[in-house]
Amino acid sequence: MNDMGKRSEKKVVLLRVFFLILGAVFTAIGILGEEYTIVLNKAVRICLECIGIG
């Protein structure tokens, strides 16, 4: 692999790690802020808008 290929591969790995960490941090913040209750409340009731009669 040439230098450019190595640099590009390194960039891919860095982006991957960055977004994995960011995703995990966001999820944790959401869980601490009990955002999942909004998701649950929406998901356990029939969403009239979603089915086209709301």
Partner: peptide, 24 residues
Amino acid sequence: GSLQAVLGTAGGRFPFYVLGILML
């Protein structure tokens, strides 16, 4: 649907939980 539900909550919220899961 969840992303819209959180964004559409009265008062407005940043959708950390849904966005985090989607990112993962």
